[in-house]
Structures are given as structure tokens and as C-alpha cells.
Design a protein around this nucleic acid. Structure first.
Lengths: 227, 227
DNA sequence: CGTTGACGAGAGCACCGCTCTCGTTGCGAA
DNA sequence: TTCGCAACGAGAGCGGTGCTCTCGTCAACG
């Protein structure tokens, strides 16, 4: 809780800055986002912004973590824990795609070309993992409910899938081996690739009814996951 | 053939400009590529560059088509038409990944966030399609050699997969229906998603041995394609 | 041989990220 | 309550960017 007046007005102004920056990001994209324009929108000197964010990249990092959190929340909201696993998977996929289409520039900031010098890892990781956590929960619940066939038993290999990631992807269960976990990572990469292809215009001449294509494709991935 | 001296020196200088720009792109990425820096490297005034490229975006568009061509050539070189279909698919995947790792900034320019205002479609399309053509040839050859099971016969739907794309993806054959074609587009999107995740650092904490992970994942995609 | 158009160089405009200085003012210690 | 300090906002300024305009030069073509 902000005790002093200064702390409270600082928190409010920080929030206003990020809000204005997010608005500009939605309009002109990350490449066009300008600190000076944000300052103009707020009626303050551009130099004053540096009291709140030490650099443009730090502002972008903040927008990135916020974006990951918003996308993660959308995925979590779309997941109904009592629905059949396949429906849960499809619902999460559709939620990710919907969020991406509603916030294309934010999605591009999250999953497109990294703009700062390949940086800003640590603080963004927990937020970035939220969608993966949802997918892992779907997979783990499916395994524990007996909806998944027993795995062939590919040897556990932390070099292939790290321990943290294996824990996120349902933990230990007879239906989950490293082959299943690789397929889960592949499915998540494929969802990302499909959404990005659509958003970045990579399949404009190939697919007209993108809604149907997306559902069919995500159904194929559900088959891949044995859901 | 350039008849006059002026035409020849113009062609040479244009090539020098794109070469210098590609060098800068490889070093600092698309966002950091500066017309003035290119001009400095060539020892000419920045305004003179505009005699050859009307804007920075046009220079980038040229680099984009060149990049698509280079990636397409790498994929074509890696494809041995007499090898088994599954080996051909894996070889093309490995070639795409190798090219991307060798030219990360160029790959990001091709498949990352679109930098100009979502533009430059027409002239880039033929070059961008080359990798897809290779994949389509592998699929079509597999079908015609009898290596593919007969398809379930999903109704042909140009809204789902356009006629041009269906023609590229092996044309008409009993083993090829729209379900197979959607899986082919999905596999290509997944290859792209997997490579991008690796390059953009999205699976740093999850996968240590990326070489093995990639091979296992592409093998799963080969299964998806029934190769 | 003369005209014209392509060309390179330079100055300049508006914008950018970022730094520094300089009054002002809230806040905690004395 | 008063005093000193640190946080703050505003402004000027630096070096960089993409891009435009002007001007002198020279090759190419009628």
C-alpha cells in the first residue's frame, strides 16, 4: 500500500504511462512506439518519462510481461476443468487465437522478432509460462483421468525436456513419457506457428476460411496429443 | 544485358548496396539497419541511395525476397528426389533449421514481425513459396510412389485449401484429400513454429539438447503426414 | 554538337532515444 | 516546526534516423 502521497501519485502515473504506451502499441506497433509520443499524449516532457522507465526497452519489457499475463489469463479463462480433454485443448487454442487477433501488435511483440538486444528474460519468464501451464494442466488431467493411452516409456532425459518443464507438463504418470512431452512442446509450437502464420499473412493465398482451417488443424494436433 | 556504361554501373552499385545492407542486417538486425550506415560503408552520401531504392522499406523488401530465395535454394539443395519420403521430409526440415541458425536476423526478417506497414506482398510471393513447393513435391512423390495410405476422401473445398495451394501440394491423387493438405500446411506451420521458438529463445528453459528435440519433433510431424 | 536526364553531394527538416541542468516541492530527520 | 535532501518536471541539447530539395556535373541520345 502506498503510504505517502508521492508514492501513490508515482504508482498512478506509472500506470498511466503504461496505459498510454499500450494504446500506442496497439495502433502503431512496437517498432513505431515512441517515448516522445507517449509523453505528448500525457502532456508531459519526454525527459520526465525517464523518472519512471530508465529506457524505452524497459517500457517495452513491461508491456511484454503485461501481454503475457493477459494472454495467459485468456487461456486460463477459456479452460473448463470439467470438460473433456480434447474440448479443453481446442478451447485453449481458440482462446489464444482470439486474443492474438484482438491484439495483433501485442502478440507480435510477444512472439515476433525480439526487439531489444535479445534481452529481458528473467522477469518475463513466469508470465510467459502461463499458457504452457494451462496446456500442461490439460495434459496432466487427461492422464490422471485415464483418457490417455499408456506411453511407450521413452526414457526420462532432462536434456530433452527439462525437469521444470516435465513437472509443468503433468508431472509423473504412466501415460506421460518424454515422447508425450516432446509432442506437447511441439503442439504448443505448432499452435504458435499457426497463429503467427495467420497473423503475419503467411497463408493469405492458401487458406480462405481461416476459422475452419484453424479448427481442423487444432483437431489434428489433438490427435497428435492422443486427446 | 546492360548496353550502356551507365546501366552497367547502376546494376553494379545496386548489387553493392544490397550486399552492404545484407551485411548490416546480419550484424544488427532489421530494426537496426540504417540507410545512412549503408551509405557510409559505401563512402557515398545517404541521399544518393535514394536514386536506387525509393525508401528504406523498398530496400528491406529486396532483402526479404533475396532471403526467401536463399532459404528456398537451401531447401531444394537438401532434397534428394530418390530418397525415401520420410528422409526427404527430415532433410528439408534440417536444412531450414540450419539456414535459420546461420542467418538468424534474415530469418527473423522473413518470418518474424512484419516491419513495414504489413506490405510488400506481390513480388515476394513466388520466392516465399519455394519452401512450400519443396514440401509439396515430397508429398506428391510419396503419394505417387504408393508410400501414402489412401485418404479418407474429405471433400475438396477451395475455401479450406485454395486451388493453387492444392496444386502445389501434390495435385490430385487418391492419397491426397483436403485433410492431408491441411496436415501439410500444419506441418509447415509447425516447422516454422519450432524453428522460431528455438531462435527467439522461447524454449530456453525447457529444452537443452535442441538438436535431438528437433529431430524427434520433426519425426512426429512425419508421422502426422503419414510419411 | 547541344540538350536532357541521370547522378552524387550537401544542406536541411522533423523526428527519435537519451542526458544534463536547473528550479520546485514533498518528505523525513533534527 | 524547521531544515536539508532527494524526487520531480521542464527545457535545452547531442547524435542519430528517414527523407526531401537544390545544385553542379557528366554521360547518353537526337
Amino acid at each position: 500500500m502506498p503510504s505517502t502521497v508521492r508514492e501513490r501519485v508515482r504508482a498512478e502515473l506509472t500506470a498511466e504511462i503504461t496505459a498510454a504506451a499500450r494504446r500506442q502499441l496497439a495502433e502503431v506497433g512496437a517498432a513505431g512506439l515512441s517515448l516522445r509520443a507517449v509523453a505528448r499524449e500525457l502532456g508531459m516532457a519526454s525527459s520526465a518519462l525517464y523518472r519512471y522507465f530508465p529506457s524505452r526497452d524497459d517500457l517495452l519489457t513491461r508491456l511484454i510481461t503485461d501481454g503475457y499475463d493477459a494472454l495467459g489469463a485468456a487461456a486460463e479463462d477459456a479452460d473448463d476443468p470439467v470438460a473433456p480433454p480434447r474440448e479443453r485443448w481446442l478451447a485453449v487454442c481458440r482462446a489464444v487465437r482470439s486474443w492474438a487477433r484482438a491484439h495483433p501488435h501485442e502478440y507480435a511483440l510477444l512472439y515476433g522478432t525480439p526487439v531489444p538486444g535479445y534481452a529481458a528474460p528473467r522477469e518475463t519468464v513466469p508470465s510467459a509460462a502461463r499458457v504452457g501451464v494451462v496446456l500442461g494442466r490439460v495434459l496432466g488431467d487427461a492422464a490422471r483421468s485415464g483418457a490417455l493411452p499408456d506411453a511407450a516409456g521413452r526414457a526420462r532425459d532432462p536434456e530433452l525436456v527439462s525437469d521444470e518443464t516435465a513437472a509443468i507438463l503433468g508431472g509423473a504418470h504412466p501415460a506421460l513419457d518424454d515422447a508425450v512431452r516432446v509432442r506437447a512442446l511441439l503442439a504448443w509450437s505448432s499452435l504458435y506457428g499457426t497463429v503467427s502464420f495467420e497473423l503475419f499473412g503467411q497463408l493469405v493465398g492458401s487458406v480462405a476460411d481461416v476459422d475452419r482451417y484453424f479448427d481442423v488443424a487444432m483437431g489434428e494436433l489433438a490427435d497428435l496429443l492422443r486427446l
